[in-house]
């Protein structure tokens, strides 16, 4: 009996230690409301404003204790929101529209990229793509299943270019087929990969240019800030504070006066990229976030969202209309 009690005491002590240790493991010291923000991709210049807001304590000023988690190919902010692991996230429009079509209660509160940074790189000395019609006869890289496939198919459809008039090439993570010239134009994120590849080809004395679907009239919305319907209903204050701090972070990070601070902050999280490259990436990122001095950072372009929905409908990527405008809840209306 005595042994039995001793055993129970031991188990209770171990359990208590585990609980206490687990509790201590959490971040302590910040008394703000704990919030998790899941990015779409890894830390790089595309999330400059997010990092800037965090590093400079803009969230804390709003009384929030935000944990920013990097994304990746297997991370999906929308799923994390539904499972309650995150309260905010970044997702591309196609992700959001797909999720809504399957019943997810996700809402868009800010559109970070006013135009999609997904473009196609090519060598102007070998390949001319001055107009979309120039795509005829070219070997075009696309990621089957990726949003670049949807964008390129939309471009081809818009300009009546039949699939047999081009050669579609399945792309992966390595750019060798493009370097070797097997593929004429290759999809890249203009503000990140686009810089790397341009630099490499420039070392080999080769010029690069980019085909921008937005210029061809295909507007397919990229990264936007999302949360859940429930969050907006139950805690609009936190949503407002979060967006305020986040957009302030973007405004400050893109301000030329703060360039060095912003570059240093990004480099702190993305050590594999040189400071010089980060600087170039930030400069290009600015064009997508704030294309003109008048552009309000985070503004939701409802027309672009509708076009994105239409593209997806035309390509049977969603079974039916989702009326995307219903889920656009601009931060300034909150």
């Amino acid at each position: 009996m005595c042994k039995h009690i001793q055993k129970l005491c031991f188990i209770a002590a171990v359990t208590a230690t585990v609980i206490v240790t687990g509790a201590c493991d959490k971040k302590t010291g910040d008394s703000g409301k704990e919030v998790t923000y899941r990015l779409k991709w890894l830390f790089n210049a595309s999330v400059a404003g997010d990092i800037y807001a965090d590093v400079n304590g803009f969230f804390a000023e709003q009384g929030l204790d935000v944990t920013i988690k990097p994304g990746g190919p297997e991370r999906d902010a929308i799923k994390e929101l539904e499972l309650g692991r995150s309260q905010f996230g970044t997702a591309s429009a196609d992700q959001v529209i797909r999720a809504v079509s399957k019943g997810a209660s996700v809402v868009v509160i800010a559109q970070l990229f006013q135009t999609n940074s997904l473009q196609w790189i090519y060598r102007p000395d070998k390949t001319r793509v001055d107009t979309p019609e120039d795509l005829r006869g070219k070997t075009i890289g696309i990621t089957y299943g990726g949003n670049d496939e949807a964008i390129m198919r939309a471009v081809l459809a818009k300009y009546n270019i039949m699939e047999n008039e081009v050669q579609l090439f399945s792309v992966h993570y390595d750019y060798t087929p493009f370097y070797e010239g097997k593929v004429d134009i290759w999809p890249v994120y203009r503000n990140t990969q686009g810089i790397f590849i341009s630099e490499k080809l420039s070392e080999a004395a080769e010029r690069t240019a980019f085909f921008d679907p937005d210029m061809a009239g295909v507007r397919f919305v990229a990264n936007s800030v999302i949360t859940t319907e429930q969050m907006i209903k139950e805690d609009p204050q936190t949503v407002r504070k979060f967006v305020t701090a986040l957009l302030r972070g973007w405004q400050k990070s893109l301000d030329p006066k703060n360039e060095e601070k912003a570059v240093a902050a990004i480099h702190q999280f993305d050590k594999d990229t040189s400071i010089e490259t980060v600087r170039k990436q930030l400069s290009v990122t600015k064009r997508f976030i704030k294309p003109s001095p008048e552009t309000e950072i985070g503004k939701i372009d409802a027309d672009a969202w509708k076009q994105t929905e239409n593209i997806m409908l035309e390509q049977n990527l969603i079974p039916g209309p989702v009326n995307v405008e219903k889920i656009l809840k601009p931060f300034y209306n909150l």
């Binding site: 999906d76 797909r98 993570y173 390595d174």
Partner: peptide, 19 residues
């Protein structure tokens, strides 16, 4: 899954792209 352009691994990768 990593890099091919056919087979079920490739199809799974596309399915994951499309969530």
């Amino acid at each position: 899954f990593i890099a091919a352009d056919s087979g079920i691994g490739y199809s799974i990768r596309i399915a994951l792209y499309q969530s």
